[in-house]
Design a protein around this nucleic acid. Structure first.
Lengths: 356, 356
DNA sequence: AATATCTACTAAATCGTTTTACTAAATCGT
DNA sequence: ACGATTTAGTAAAACGATTTAGTAGATATT
């Protein structure tokens, strides 16, 4: 229906266009009450207890009638709290970040929080600048995903896959020892002894710890991750291309191996392509183990055996942890770390080593 | 170094903790000037022309020294503009949305805009509520991605893959006729005549137009998309699972076909799995044509032939269009539609029809 | 009948900026 | 030497809420 809202008695502006927002003052004027009273009633403040039900009804009805919408900016400014957090990720479309974000959003939305996303693209200037501008925009806290913390926290920070201990920062981390045991254990039990590895890029938070825990798990079994069988991902596109290139260069070295430990599923998929182009079948000739368990993993050909990181959970946990810290603002006991557990998902890209 | 910032002369609070934000008033007091002057100088307002360079320097130096950070909330409230937009998507981790978002962010960040993301998960209540709360939070505009507009716009809206004409909404759309010509043309030229189709879910904006344009392109060539060879995706998980299930049910019908037109790459991947489980080789026995060209498409086995939708571009264009509309607030000539072109990427999942 | 408490409100301060409208002193033009 | 302009600022009013501190009248208490 056509807007039949305000009568010509509207004060200054002659033509009441389609929709000009009505403020608390407007509504108060309309009702012949003060903004104070409306605020108390609308926010169900304890001080509104003395206001009779009839007046309350008038206020609620009036708010509905004039379609009153509180201005969140004004409220936030007054109460010094925006119910908004900042989320810093390396890049949006890399699968990893998107899954984590999904978990973050799910936890935040039930708490009526919103979030501002910003990608640092591994650029130093952005790593330095983004936290600052997010804080200028008065976010209540920050969730960083696979992102180094290069600033001194002035608001609560939760870092997903952060490994540095920093005052004011809670890290959400995977149990990497366990992940390594699962991965190396799986390959070892299938008879693999010469295991190649694709390390992550230096900028990834998990690169170092992944490598160390995998090495230890291998050593424990009397084998080792041979540097000659190790390559590192180069470049920062979130495409299997980087895994493909890495595997190509490893294959060019002529070294022999029966299994590959990929840094993640995306690089595993690239590596498989490179192996097949070389005439090597996966898993008949070479087993490939992924990491993460992204959506594509289950439907790749061959379906990827992979170590599942509960990315949604990690984002969810990060958000819940942050919200909790925000709720208990006074307390200064900040958890350094909260952990999640990996699982191994065995599919078709790994198999018993062939006798040769 | 340890914070050697404020002297004991600080007014009320005795201990200057690690970091309490300094306001414009604080800084003005510190410099013995008025907030007005600082504001004029710091914002390089034309009225600051009369302020001598020396005073300006004092102000800039003071701001740096006390680490003054303007409160964006207060500024936004005053200037009635937040430099923030709202983005509504179906779900974050569906690949499609993430790519579009990537493009959006890229355009926004160069303009110093931020954005609040919200997922509607195809839920009616959220479709109704999210735009409202985003507007309460004073976003300057909204970008909707593959999302029906269920409200009367009071601020500029750009809808990616929107097909309804709504006052105040600009649609960013793919040239679907062209896409259909490319897709059907490709399969037709390879000799395919019995083409199965996987329709999108009803909630996807493109489902109907995709179907219509593909049908027309087929009819034009004297063939038709047989309803008996058509299945529709069911469910809203962004996994190949839904394509797998759809293809399974088509195969169960016993109908014969030589090619499949999938609604998108994700469902194409699921369909391929179903075909292979049935002993049908792709592309030797059945060709499969995807849509979108997501990252995984090039590295799937077989690599997907697909119709590329420039998702990043679409997001980027959407954001640029919105920013332009925000800049020319007065003008009321709102473009109804801006378009982008598809391209076909021929890879390994389609081939000439086998003679049988 | 005087005091205390409760009821139903409101005025004004506040959050931290920007912006409009001044002002006092110095300089300029004639 | 007088008015006009320029210089170098400032006071106060926005923006739109929330919150503190009242207040005037009605009712209850002693």
């Amino acid at each position: 229906m056509p807007t039949s809202d305000e009568q010509p008695k509207s004060k200054s502006k002659p033509t009441n266009r389609n929709a000009d927002p009505v403020s608390l003052k407007d509504l108060a004027l309309h009702l012949g009450l003060s903004p104070t009273t409306l605020s108390l009633v609308l926010n169900d403040s304890p001080q509104a207890s003395s206001i009779p039900a009839e007046t309350k009804k008038r206020i609620f009805d009036g708010a509905r009638e004039l379609n009153y919408r509180p201005n969140y900016l004004a409220r936030s400014l007054r109460v010094q709290k925006t119910n908004t957090i900042g989320v810093i990720v390396p890049e949006l479309s890399d699968g990893y970040s998107a899954m984590v974000l999904n978990g973050v959003e799910s936890a935040l939305s039930t708490a009526e929080y919103f979030y501002l996303t910003a990608s640092h693209l591994h650029r130093d200037d952005l790593l330095e600048r983004l936290p600052r501008v997010l804080i200028e925009r008065q976010v209540d806290g920050i969730i960083a995903v696979d992102t180094p913390i290069r600033f001194t926290p002035t608001i609560p920070i939760v870092n997903v896959s952060g490994h540095e201990e920093i005052e004011g920062v809670t890290n959400v981390v995977l149990n990497h020892q366990h992940a390594a045991e699962l991965g190396i254990g799986h390959l070892y039990n299938l008879g693999h002894r010469r295991i190649a590895a694709i390390k992550g890029q230096d900028f990834s938070s998990d690169t170092l710890v992944r490598w160390q825990t995998m090495s230890e798990a291998a050593n424990k079994r009397g084998i080792s991750l041979d540097p000659a069988l190790t390559v590192q991902l180069q470049g920062d596109t979130p495409s299997p291309e980087v895994g493909y290139t890495a595997m190509k260069s490893l294959l060019a070295s002529g070294e022999r191996f029966t299994a590959v430990l990929a840094f993640n599923d995306v690089s595993a998929i690239g590596a498989i392509r490179a192996l097949e182009e070389m005439g090597l079948r996966v898993p008949a000739d070479v087993s490939v183990l992924g990491f993460d368990d992204i959506y594509a993993a289950a439907f790749h050909n061959p379906a990827l055996t992979t170590i599942r990181q509960p990315l949604f959970e990690m984002g969810n946990l990060a958000a819940r942890t942050l919200l909790e810290r925000l709720a208990n603002r006074g307390e200064n006991s900040v958890a350094k770390t909260v952990g999640v557990e990996p699982t191994i998902i065995v599919r078709q890209s790994t198999s018993r080593v062939s006798q040769s």
